[in-house]
Simulated scan of single mutants.
Amino acid sequence: MKSSKPVHLREVWTDNLVYEFFLIKEAISRFPLVALDTEFPGTIFQLNRDKSWLSHATPYENYCLMKWNVDLLKIIQLGMALSDSHGNLPSFGTEFHYAWQFNFRDFNIKHDHHNEESIGLLERQGIDLKKNREKGIDSSDFERLILSLLILTKRELPSDMRSFLGMMRFFFGVRVYDTKFMMGCISGLHGGLERVAMLLGVERITGSRHQAGSDSLSSLQTFVRFKESCAKIDLEKLNGYEGMMFGLCEGWLGFTYAPDTFMGTLV
């Protein structure tokens, strides 16, 4: 980031949801780069095949697997970080810079589908599922507010991949970037968010990994650093990554259930 101001994660619950959306709407015109990260209760459907099969999966097979999981699972957290083109975050005239962490109440560990190992990891990283159930946001309330920012939740994914990519373009336009897909821009980059951030010299500046607010901020920093690195190689090369999703686009193999970075502009 371009300032020495510390970064504060704004925790969003049902009682401050409307106010935090007011702040986001105030900031979005000056900070139009948006990085999102989500936390879900793991992966339920997996392929009972050798892992090497994933490197040969077709985009259609990848999309089906993603849809089965997304449609069945309920969101736990969503992180959002806003910045300008230089990576500066909103401060609202205070001594801090800010990013947001939305906590949802929908997931109930007693009867909803989940992966035990993933839930254990999230709890070790500080996510309080009991508090989420008591004070968290109902995703239906979140959806009503965020429709003005063009994000949908609690909806099944389209039945086919072409419709999904069309929906992405309709709501977000073409200026959407998936860092997992973009890694081919720089030789030697591979792995998850934490590893790519480390290779690019990006340090986590607040919060814990596997918490949505902190991960969205790391995604934002990684994207900005990645963009700067690509510009040094080929100023026009970044344009080829607009709207391309890892595992779902021609010429790229492999699959990730949730992209490490989902980056776009909302204005």
Rank of each mutant, 00 (worst) to 15 (best):
M1P: 12
K2W: 10
K2V: 15
S3W: 13
S4L: 03
L9D: 01
R10T: 01
V12G: 02
V12F: 03
V12Y: 07
N16C: 14
L17R: 11
V18I: 12
E20C: 04
F22M: 08
L23A: 05
L23D: 08
I24R: 04
A27Y: 14
S29V: 09
R30L: 02
R30W: 11
T38C: 07
E39R: 06
I44L: 02
F45L: 00
Q46F: 12
N48H: 14
K51Q: 05
S52L: 06
W53V: 11
W53Q: 08
L54N: 00
H56I: 01
A57S: 13
A57Q: 04
Y60Q: 15
Y60S: 15
N62R: 06
M66F: 01
I76P: 02
L78F: 15
M80L: 13
L82A: 00
L82M: 01
H86P: 02
G87D: 04
G87Q: 07
G93L: 00
F96H: 08
Y98P: 01
W100P: 01
F104L: 00
F104Y: 07
D106R: 02
F107P: 00
K110C: 09
H111Y: 10
H113S: 13
H113Y: 08
L122Y: 00
L129S: 13
R133V: 04
E134L: 13
I137V: 02
D138A: 03
D138E: 07
L150F: 00
L152I: 15
K154G: 05
R155G: 02
E156D: 11
D160P: 08
D160V: 02
M161K: 05
S163C: 09
S163T: 09
L165H: 05
L165P: 10
R169H: 10
F171K: 12
M182Y: 02
M183D: 03
C185F: 14
R195C: 04
A197F: 02
L200E: 03
V202L: 14
I205W: 03
A212V: 01
D215S: 11
D215T: 14
S218I: 03
L220A: 09
Q221V: 11
F223A: 11
V224G: 00
V224E: 09
E228D: 13
L235W: 04
K237C: 10
N239C: 10
G243S: 09
C249Q: 06
L253S: 09
T261C: 13
